[in-house]
Amino acid sequence: MDTATPAVTVALHDGTSVIASSGQVDARRHGELLLPAVDRVLAEAGTKLDAVTGVVVGVGPGPYTGLRVGLVTAATFGSALSVPVHGVCTLDGIAYAAGQDGLEGPFVVATDARRKEVYWARYENARTRTGEPAVDRPADIAEAVAGLPVVGAGAVLYPESFPDRRGPEHVAAGALAALAAERLAAGQELPAPQPLYLRRPDAQVPKNYKVVTPK
């Protein structure tokens, strides 16, 4: 599952292929949409959650409120079911999906980081990221990535900085799961499900920092 971007996406993968999946795009309702989507995907596959032997979750980077929904859900599933929980960089999932669509490297993946910035990373090919994900203003990196195809919502939002736009726009949990399954089958370790925030928290105390009883 992945909630690091406006997409709330869930898929069930059996190690070979995606059995069922769900993708909804709604940047403000991750919390409401995720569990019903899990339920729907399992129902479509004709199985129950306790049949799952591992959980893979997108660790971002992504806007924090939504990102945490997927991470805490995955961690709780892991605890309740006593199964391992693996993290996968959300940008890696998008890159992998671009590769499934036929895109060959090198290319860039960029997603919406809000505040007129993008989360982005460079890829040698669909399976190989070069360097750590970063957060920047599109104009500030346009020159550095000039000539490279750009995948993801960042390219949709900032065509002047990223003219060579390629699909897909959003992350799909099926691609995330397939990538994780491939790496696990190859004996690779997947990172812990820790969030990639990439920004320090805004350390501002709101004026009325806690809600008072409505009258």
């Binding site: 945490r68 991470l71 969030p195 350390a203």
Partner: peptide, 18 residues
């Protein structure tokens, strides 16, 4: 910070939850 910072609280909840 002299008060509860929401984003810091949310990050701490995620770490501490399970």
């Amino acid at each position: 910070f002299g008060g509860v910072v929401p984003e810091i609280a949310s990050r701490a909840h995620l770490e501490a939850m399970v």
